[in-house]
Amino acid sequence: MTTELGPAVMEITGTEPVSSEDQARERYQRLAANGWATVGIPSHLGGSGGSMADAAAVVAAVAASGPGIPIGETAIIAGWLLAAAGLALPEAGCCAVPVLRPAEAALTGTGNGGLLTLRAPRVAWASWASHLIVPVPLDENRALVVTLENAHAVIRHGVNLAGESRDDVETAGVPVQAAATADMPFKDLLAGLHAAGALARSIQIAAALRRVTGMTARYCTQRSQFGRPLTAFQAVQQQLAELAAESAAADAAVTFALGRRDAFHGQVSAAVAKARTSQAAGAGARIAHQLHGAIGVTQEHPLPRYTRALWAWRDEYGSETSWSRLLAERAADADEPLWEWVTADE
């Protein structure tokens, strides 16, 4: 992962989580003004045009400051979806978020004059964004990607455990702003989109878990019971070691996925990343809370800002269970012995 971008982003985000929606918007605006919010979107499509590694570094730096900012959606996931169809961002300075799981998506009429009927559950940041980017079936071999203003959509507000908007969205024949064709079946487009989502959340989980690990290790050196720092107790040391291992594993799984070149609709790299980071999220959060004791379950303490995000993100865009199932199926479907599949390059 490129790390040079991290410090530049951290200059904007700082290290403290946002504590209100206003503050979150203000932080997002500053990220957007500096081009970070669309770093995963090619410049000819209106983004800032970085590599996937750049986008990952930015998303990680933002997640390290806490939840509440739609960066995974606007940089990585939107970047992949727009690039798949060569569709540009609707307008400069907009906040466009992708719809990953349309229960229903149909376009009547063609191209830019088309009318969209959409039903999608738990769309991340729908009520926050200015625009939605929606995949729509076209024919056997092709799909459409369309953009629309979210002012046209009916939005029922929901939240995840970190308080981030996860909204049900509906439109009934509303005009789209732009449309373009992706040369892949709709099913593949959705698979790739789901994988892009999984990778984005994996990056966020790994970054948040690293913060949690540092916070926990520091706390255990500061807190004393029975006249000794907590780090003097073997039971505490064992758990700290397990937490550090989960955090390292989450980082490694993300690094593995970023280092591979398989397109997202191959899904395997994202599956490894999300299966492992979601596992680490739960295990890590549990240990961090156990070692913090009661102080860690208070609203004032920074720890729950991160653990609530970990609990939310581990289930979004596929839990460890669903991605593990996919990996097991892929291994079973492969025509080669397991070890050969495990060591195959792509």
């Binding site: 929901g158 455990l161 996860r166 809370h289 156990q290 004791g293 379950v297 609990w311 289930d315």
Partner: peptide, 26 residues
Amino acid sequence: EPDPLSAEPLARLLADAVLHAPAFTL
């Protein structure tokens, strides 16, 4: 997905359980 605002009882109960769980072992 756990959601404290969900109309689905399972999603609501899960949200409650996940958020309270750290206290159980303390």
